[in-house]
Design a protein around this nucleic acid. Structure first.
Lengths: 136, 136
DNA sequence: AGTGCTGGTCTCTTTTTGAGACTAACACTT
DNA sequence: AAGTGTTAGTCTCAAAAAGAGACCAGCACT
């Protein structure tokens, strides 16, 4: 019998209707936030907010990023319009990455979060310690 | 000969020394940011900022999260002290998730970023369109 | 000729995530 | 009493993403 399955489907439709306009599935905010919430994105934006950097400089500045992820994250940031990539015809050619106006504009609120992180690092670390010892 | 390797190692030490105090490898900010920069973390914090939710409600609110990732992200947020988890002895037992004071405190700067995302969604989308057509 | 620099790409392995079946204990319906 | 529904998860397996490291071209310096 698929009466069970049918009922389930009906319920799902109800849920969909109930949450329409209030759910987060097709949210423009998500579209933007996901682009900057990657593991390395915010870090690179923070670095580039200080000053433009070359590829190798960034690699040395963030030693535990793989070259592969550095390339890709910079590519993604460039695609979303946060970062400008400029190739200089030196030998060997060098590539400089810098924030665009959009990137700088996005860095402003990001910096709020970074400041919060600085101030509350200890609180988070203690929360972890408490939680871990409670679990044990 | 490993003179090549030796030189490389020496250089790496130099780089390490050069960037000490200025690199991002052991940054307390990173420690905090990474915890909230996951794919689902900020989204769930945003939802819980509105009001407390139960497990199933969150799942319906964010239809494209897997149950597995919902469980795990909530666990991580709880461990870092952003989220409080309370089990009610109903039948079947229900579990309510809510933001802690730390969570609400973190949501304040996060909201700045969300507002920026709302305002600049179109700019990002256009940057992508421009970039993609330039690549083609 | 050998070594280094540049900014990558390619391949392989490990980790993370997603999809979906499955659970226990109880309530309500039939 | 059997069947269905609810709850908040866990478990397993497949797919996607990330990390590690070799490799590349082109030129400079020794």
């Amino acid at each position: 019998m698929d009466s069970k399955i049918f009922n389930l489907k009906a319920k799902l439709e109800v849920y969909k209707a109930m949450t329409n306009g209030a759910n987060f599935a097709d949210c423009p905010v998500r579209d933007v936030i996901q682009g900057i919430s990657g593991k390395w994105s915010s870090l690179l934006v923070m670095a580039l907010a200080e000053k433009p950097y070359r590829f190798g400089e960034l690699r040395r500045l963030v030693p535990d990023i793989s070259q592969r992820m550095l390339t890709q994250t910079l590519y993604d940031l460039q695609r979303d319009g946060y970062v400008h990539r400029e190739v200089f015809p030196t030998k060997p050619p060098s590539v400089e990455y810098s924030l665009t106006d959009l990137g700088r504009s996005m860095f402003a609120p990001l910096q709020m979060l970074v400041q919060w992180a600085e101030l509350n690092h200890d609180a988070v670390r203690e929360a972890r310690a408490v939680f871990d010892s409670a679990q044990a």
